[in-house]
Design a protein around this nucleic acid. Sequence first.
DNA 1: CTGAAAGCGCTTACAG
DNA 2: CTGAAAGCGCTTACAG
Lengths: 351, 351
Amino acid sequence: MKKSIDVKAGRRAAFKDEGKVTLDMVAAAAGVSPSTVSRILNGTATVSDDKRKTVDEAIARLGFVPNPVARGLAGGRTLSVGVITQTIDSPFFGSALRGVEDELSRAGYSPLFVSGHWNVAQEARCIDMLRSRRVDGIIVLNGRLPDAALTAHALQLPVVVTGRALKAAGLYALNFDDFEGARLATHHLLSLGHRRIAFIAGDPRHPDAKERQRGYRAALQAAGLPLEQDLVVPGQYTEDSGRMAVERLLDSRESFTAIFAANDQMAFGAALALHRRHLRVPDDVSLVGYDDIAGASYSVPPLSTVHHPVYELGQIAAAAMLQLLAGETPTARLPAPRFIARESSRAAPGR
Amino acid sequence: MKKSIDVKAGRRAAFKDEGKVTLDMVAAAAGVSPSTVSRILNGTATVSDDKRKTVDEAIARLGFVPNPVARGLAGGRTLSVGVITQTIDSPFFGSALRGVEDELSRAGYSPLFVSGHWNVAQEARCIDMLRSRRVDGIIVLNGRLPDAALTAHALQLPVVVTGRALKAAGLYALNFDDFEGARLATHHLLSLGHRRIAFIAGDPRHPDAKERQRGYRAALQAAGLPLEQDLVVPGQYTEDSGRMAVERLLDSRESFTAIFAANDQMAFGAALALHRRHLRVPDDVSLVGYDDIAGASYSVPPLSTVHHPVYELGQIAAAAMLQLLAGETPTARLPAPRFIARESSRAAPGR
DNA sequence: CTGAAAGCGCTTACAG
DNA sequence: CTGAAAGCGCTTACAG
């Protein structure tokens, strides 16, 4: 339900008008036409050096700042790009947002962040909202929007999407190698001599969760170990689901010497469950997470995990968007995942 | 350095034009003037019921969505409010952003998030950017901007600021009671029988850090205990500063049975330092934090801390902004801090 | 209660 | 290389 708000009334009552300087004023001050000022501003067409100089001076002297709103109306571009994030306060995507912001602002663009909450309907509404605000392009950070919806929008304005592999006109997809990351993590545990490695799976609705599980399996297989179905327990990427998964595991009396959780948040939940049962990490059980979120290096003990360069993800996504906007074809790829051994994992007992 | 980007070229080459429907088209379809459609859209002036009906139908049939960019230019309002956050990926402010977003979107407004990075110059640039984008108002989440700068801007457009007490025309300030929160936390430790309670102070450049220290002192004083300067160690609100503070404390051979860290991040660092020295929490040392950030309930052991309703902070700040925009005077206050006892604190040894 | 007209601050074909 | 003019899609006094 929209409240109706009489802004003008409030404004009139309380705020004095800002003494804004317009492009026309600059033109008058420099003794040229507005068109010329506009051209200089945009680097369109060629302008004689002396005119450019007087105009530049006038701009500086008057402290002129172009009005992006007017620019948006007249030129069809708003210098803003929409960013659909799932939860704006996510520990994982937070730094991606910073990466986007930093990269975009270099080129004079601003991000418009909206949250989809992993909800298709909500994400669709975000896109409508962003398009009604005439953003120049849209960056979609993961989410559950169908590929078809994305490719359809990409026909109308540039789209960069993360978390899936997809090829289409006007669209660029960026994806982490979750398979490889999970393989590395599992391999780490194997190389420490662990043979019975439990796996706490992520939310199966996320494609990355499936990839991570595939990586876990592939590593076991490469080591010639069988996949024990009983050591694989479902989770939802939340702390609490990690805690419950370990409780279930412990109650099943299945033996294991290590746990690989498909993300750090579940690993934290797992650590708590182990602590409650008086099992020590890593003395009794080795624990490995995934993502390397902010808290990972300061948990007790510090968590061994797979690091994804998330800040770079944001930066690279933004850079790709700028290329798309410039009519170029992006080619950047994401850096490979790196395993970071900290203190939550050590050699298996008796080795 | 700004890259120059020829957007139009890219757009022309790759994207087909969106078949947008304009207000004029709606007017034509409904057989009324554009003015009338505009009035109906904005609830300005009175319109006869039958016209309203035909117009509403035309809007629905054509799927018309007003263009906020044009609205912004013509009406002087953009239905967007700037939000200066310090670090967009902060564990503390993250949920405030969600609160802002949720509340604003109810009224059809969108937030424009920018990061000030606790840097006055950067924050000032953010404000310039937001104003050049013609936001209708600005919400400043803490930060270091001088009060004078804020009150000056508030003369021109509504400003809501958190993290400081300030009264001025067009401005509304919202502040947590950090003094009280710290008093509660210290009192909790005292009531458990702790007498030698170390305090890890926050970044002294943050006013809340001073308030928290005041609260600590006040509680000791109320209990008739002297303030031991040697038990107060400086920190910067980061995990690492918490870790170092505890190391310093331990090296000083000062005796203490509990630690109160001025924020959770420092408490995590403290916990790690204690762990490294083979001191158990809470068996050997009780530990209390402040903020109740996301990880606090899942650290090992779960951290006792002071909870500030940060999501509500965002919501209330946004609601106050909407009131300011409507020419009303906000009166909402923030809820009081609450102490949450978890497992990192327990009775002092010998009690 | 409703329209015609001007204007918000820019950009961009169209001429020259 | 540069200007005059039209236009982006709305809102809002001004009349009636």
